[in-house]
Amino acid sequence: MSLTQPQPSRGGEPARPVGRWRLLLPQLRRQRVGLGAAIFLLVVAASGILAPQLAPYDPLRIDARNTLAPPSGEHWFGTDDVGRDVFSRVIWGARISLRVGFVSAIISTVIGVVLGLVSGYYEGAVGFVILRAMDLLLAFPGILLALAIVSILGSSIENVMIAVGISAVPTFTRVVHGSVLSVKQNDYVEGARALGCRAVGMFRRHIFPNVLAPVIVLFTLQIGAAIFSASSLSFIGLGAQPPSPEWGAMVSRGRYVLSNAFWMSAFPGLAIALVVIAINVLGDSLRDLLDPRIR
């Protein structure tokens, strides 16, 4: 099916070319797993937003007579060591984790994309300095960079967002840089330049739309990676502080009573795992949809 072939028109209406969405639809149908992941994430997000209405108990209310109660009809996920309802805390935790994921992924995306566009467009000294700076950040593998930043800024969930956000900047910069370099090879970019197109117009009209697809995929995957890293930092005590119902912090608190109250660690950890799995599945689906080159 060609893009420009006019569709048979009805009732004298002018024929329209097949739209982008029309083309995407059959492909969307093939991404059933990705669609399922997206729906699951929407449910999690909605329950996080509606936590005050949905959670059966106050996530911070201590009940000294009802500590470490196993899962039951009254407390679906049991209660923790000070009698707080684990189910309610997991629902409230969705709020925290999704916010952390979004905010830090936005930090990485904005800084990373700007640096990638600039370093790809101005290949000379500016590009060199930016790329070497990224190499330097990449010298601190995995969670080490975020850990270093948190040890400077101090332990709090806000600082974790900044730390995790910064530590993923090089990934975005490198991908965008590479895309810009390949886009620049195209004749139409050369043509636009010959016609006197300024740098800003060039970014907006010609370069940015072309690097958008990989950025959307990376952004999605980064939300999951950020939730993963942030909960790890909270687990080791450098992120969310008690009594916050952050999932990583909840798993951490539960490990001291693991052998007689597994539910304290098991359920919040399961929540992290399911959300990160769903985001990764969604990211992979988006990649298949938007970026057929890397299938």
Binding site: G224, F228, S231, S232, F235, I236, G248, V251, S252, G254, R255, L258, S259, F262, S265, A266, G269, L270, I272, A273, V276, I277, N280
Partner: peptide
């Protein structure tokens, strides 16, 4: 996707 700290605890369990 499974956080290693949680997987570790579940394996211990």
């Amino acid at each position: 996707s499974i956080p290693s700290f949680w997987l570790g605890l579940m394996l211990i369990l």
